[in-house]
Design a protein around this nucleic acid. Structure first.
Lengths: 245, 245
DNA sequence: CTATAAAACGTATAATTGACGTTTGTTTTA
DNA sequence: TAAAACAAACGTCAATTATACGTTTTATAG
């Protein structure tokens, strides 16, 4: 048996955003753009994650950060490397074979997959060279390669992670209402939460700071605005492993 | 800028075991064996994780499973891919430069790291071609490459994971006592647990089955033996995401 | 048959959760 | 300008779970 030769290494970025208007967890995807068999570039009728090869002197993390910046302009976002995908057949589904020159299939392609949590409002989807678009996680378009699998694994990881750590605030504006936070949890976890209990629990957290501000431009009683203090969270909750099982 | 050329892809395996006698979480490491500058093989005076290149038609998971089997003979163990390491300088520390031909440094080496939980009793450390040895996680030897970093990240992941899922039983014999389970938690998390509360909590789990057996060969009141039912666990606890934060 | 020590059981209290009713405050509309 | 509408915000109680201990049981060693 032989070792894999000339493998390709890339990063792929699953970008999560939250849209308060539709109350949906969204994914930023781009139109697929491939080299066809005759050497010209073709736009394939499906969507993919943004990803790219890694530069010679670049760390994996830096590479992912760069790809995200090119796509969104953002630099200081929540980022997590969640899994590497490298099955020998991961790019060999029938549909993809039509587009890519078979030569490419002689080389293993391993991708280190990251997910990002961004504030949708911070992203101008038209400010990049891609045809980027937000899609609700509940209504994804046709996806290229094995990117649906990658997305679903990122989503599973996010579900677990957002219950363990207050990363949910990465998806919201700096100032938010309690109900907005509840909506995000409900959208991500696909569950119903009792508002009164949720409210009490969240307000009691030391790291949730009430501001001297209320919502403006709403046609009902305006809600109190809060902010999340990462500082306080990190000082108070520094890893104490307590049994719960 | 150039993309990385001819990268090396491998898997590395962090093997955790638990020793009931010393009540310590252990790691299975091997003596390092390298090609020196003149082409001969040298035994370096430090330890490393077992790892290996990936074969041409092998998935990442299969590759890790193969490496573990070569090392321990075991095939049905708990396995988790927890992180990829691929910094451009990850193999370039001074000590390693002495041993490896500099040529090797022209190529990026990305490793997909897995950790395994095994039952120490099932492993015969001398049944492989390596000089494998168990080390307490609290007293690791000098480690080659960036393997200390890899181990520490695996350990962090294990701590979180063992609180979220009952993977701890992967480290224990099929038949165990309540106190043994407590000892494992204490060793992994480095905490003290109240035995009376822990006992009550664990016994109340539906997936902890009391057996018609007691400890033998102990010079005190022999403890009741229990088993873990993965079946029952999986049937009862299928992912329901409940808010706790 | 008694001392020993771990195993196993028990109890009282505090904290958290879950389910649900009520009040408050702002905007709209009648 | 008062009332209706409605989300925001607060409150209550029972059930569950966590925490902190004290007590009893039981097999073995001497």
């Amino acid at each position: 048996m032989e070792f894999i030769k000339n493998p390709n290494i890339s990063v792929d970025c699953v970008v999560f955003g939250y849209d308060p208007k539709t109350k949906s967890l969204n994914l930023l995807l781009i139109k697929r753009y491939l080299e066809s068999k005759d050497g010209s570039e073709v736009l394939v009728d499906d969507y993919v994650l943004t990803g790219y090869h890694i530069y010679e002197h670049e760390t994996l993390d830096d590479s992912a950060t760069r790809v995200l910046k090119e796509l969104t302009g953002l630099t200081n976002t929540y980022k997590k490397q969640f899994k590497a995908f490298g099955d020998p057949n991961r790019l060999k589904n029938e549909k993809d074979m039509l587009w890519i020159d078979n030569e490419a299939f002689n080389f293993r392609t391993v991708t280190i997959a990251y997910y990002f949590l961004v504030k949708t409002e911070d992203v101008d989807v038209n400010k990049n060279k891609y045809q980027a678009k937000w899609f609700p996680i509940t209504d994804l378009p046709e996806l290229g390669f094995d990117h649906e699998k990658i997305i679903l694994e990122a989503y599973e990881d996010l579900k677990v992670k957002c219950l363990a750590e207050p990363i949910i605030f990465e998806l919201l504006p700096d100032k938010f209402t309690i109900n907005e936070v509840q909506d995000v949890y409900q959208s991500i976890l696909n569950i119903e939460i009792d508002n009164r209990n949720f409210r009490r629990k969240l307000i009691n957290k030391k790291y949730i700071i009430p501001l001297d501000e209320k919502q403006v431009g709403v046609s009902k009683k305006p809600a109190q605005l809060y902010m999340f203090s990462k500082d306080i969270y990190e000082k108070m909750y520094q890893k104490n492993y307590l049994i719960s099982m």
